[in-house]
Design a protein around this nucleic acid. Structure first.
Length: 152
DNA sequence: GCCAACGTTGGC
DNA sequence: GCCAACGTTGGC
């Protein structure tokens, strides 16, 4: 079992939206970055645990927990000219983009701010702090445990 | 294959 | 809204 951090803009779809549809799962769509795509397609597995991270908003940080509810599958939006995620270069037999489904697990009592994460000596190697722009990123077991034990 | 131009992400 | 980081595109 592995741990991940998924970014989302809460004004578009945040932890509250995920909670509202629980116990239904939500397709985590719109991943259009190759590094994130490769992680999704090749490494994210059903049952993995996920930090839901709110970005581009007033309160930036880890807002809650979710669980991966499906292995990666082809994101149909890439073939839909009406979709904002349409990719004219994607072919049916050689899809470019994938997505997984996630299901709500819980909302943290208090969002863990990015600022607080940055202050932790134990977290200096977190992908989030080293490579800010990746929208699907691995979290090491010890980072996961540290965050939930000391910061949540 | 290099690299400049350009576009996007995302914190502030 | 600004700007740094960085991914992608396209000319050569």
């Amino acid at each position: 079992m592995a741990y991940w951090l998924f970014k989302t803009e809460p004004q578009v779809f945040g932890i509250d939206d995920l909670a509202a549809i629980h116990p239904k799962s939500e397709p985590w769509d719109g991943i259009r970055n190759y590094q994130a795509r490769n992680l999704l397609r090749d490494q994210v597995a059903e049952g993995d645990e996920v930090f839901i991270y709110h970005s581009s908003c007033a309160q930036v940080g880890i807002a809650g927990l979710a669980r991966v509810a499906s292995a990666a599958y082809v994101d149909p939006d890439q073939f839909d000219p009406e979709s904002k995620y349409y990719d004219p270069k994607a072919e049916q037999d050689t899809p470019r983009w994938y997505r997984v489904d996630v299901v709500y697990q819980r909302t943290l009592d208090k969002l863990i701010p990015l600022k607080l994460l940055k202050q932790q000596e134990a977290l200096v190697d977190m992908v989030l702090l080293k490579q800010g722009r990746l929208s699907v990123q691995p979290v090491r077991q010890e980072e996961w445990d540290y965050i939930l034990t000391h910061l949540a």
